[in-house]
């Protein structure tokens, strides 16, 4: 019963949105709105920009989080509570506050004028996305590392003569690959439509584009919402796929 009501509540807006998105042509349902949206250069440019941002965020995030989580488990378990606390901070401090802080700290007359030119601002935006993704990335990677016996694996690799880079790349990474990937897709879903950061840093990302269209058009926003929903769904679907594949891998590890 609860499930039935829940299903209606969650499906109705999607159905309504989809229905609305088909009504662009007066004389009946059509995919006109999608055609208009997909052929809009603004859409292509901003979606491409956000995709690039998401990919960069994922790469930098992984390079930052995996070695840290690994190191914490191996050498500095005392620091775990502190690191966990820091990674949870982005859930405590609203994104709008963080970006406001950036504007104050890195404005064009500051010691590190990261908002001075577009490339630097892109870098700042990416860092802000890494910050946003920190809670998701850290949690899924830390859980993945805990599922394998990091210490024993490392010691086994060391005793076989492996260097640190090859331990990380050949022993640790492959064993937590699925955890990393699921963190990565979650990050993608979070970053792709992000609005606050991109808008306040003034970068041409997909989120602000959505907002602009929403404020000025009638049918295109619905089509965009459906597209965004599909992108989110695809990210989550991929997480499921990798989570399922991960199980046998962990058993043998």
């Amino acid at each position: 019963m609860a499930i039935a009501i829940g299903t209606i509540y969650f499906l109705l807006p999607l159905i309504a949105t989809f229905e609305f998105s088909l009504k662009m042509n007066r004389d009946g349902y059509s995919f006109e709105a999608y055609k208009v949206v997909l052929s809009d250069p603004g859409f292509q440019a901003t979606f491409g920009y956000s995709t690039l941002m998401a990919v960069l965020t994922i790469i930098v995030g992984i390079l930052l989080v995996v070695p840290t989580a690994y190191w914490i488990q191996l050498k500095l378990p005392r620091l775990r509570p502190l690191v966990e606390f820091i990674t949870l901070l982005p859930l405590v401090i609203p994104a709008i506050v963080i970006v406001f802080g950036y504007l104050k700290l890195y404005n064009s007359s500051a010691w590190l004028p990261l908002t001075g030119n577009d490339r630097a601002t892109d870098f700042l935006l990416m860092c802000s996305y890494v910050t946003l993704a920190l809670p998701y990335l850290y949690r899924s990677i830390d859980a993945g590392l805990r599922a394998i016996d990091v210490r024993t694996l490392t010691e086994a690799a060391e005793s076989l003569g492996a260097s640190w880079p090859s331990i990380l790349l050949q022993v640790i990474f492959p064993n937590v690959k699925s955890a990393i990937l699921s963190g990565a897709f979650l990050t993608f879903a979070v970053v792709i439509g992000e609005f606050t950061m991109a808008s306040l840093l003034g970068r041409p990302a997909f989120g602000p584009y959505l907002q602009l269209i929403g404020a000025n058009r009638a049918y295109e926003p619905s089509a965009l919402a459906i597209i965004a929903f599909l992108v989110t769904w695809a990210s989550m679907g991929l997480i499921q796929v990798f989570a399922r594949n991960a199980r046998p891998a962990r058993k043998t590890a």
Partner: peptide, 21 residues
């Protein structure tokens, strides 16, 4: 799976969906 999707389906697209509803 659906919760994973819906909990991330926040922000602007969500507001479009509710306006359409």
């Amino acid at each position: 799976t659906f919760s994973g999707v819906a909990s991330n389906f926040a922000g602007i697209p969500l507001s479009f969906a509710f306006l359409s509803t």
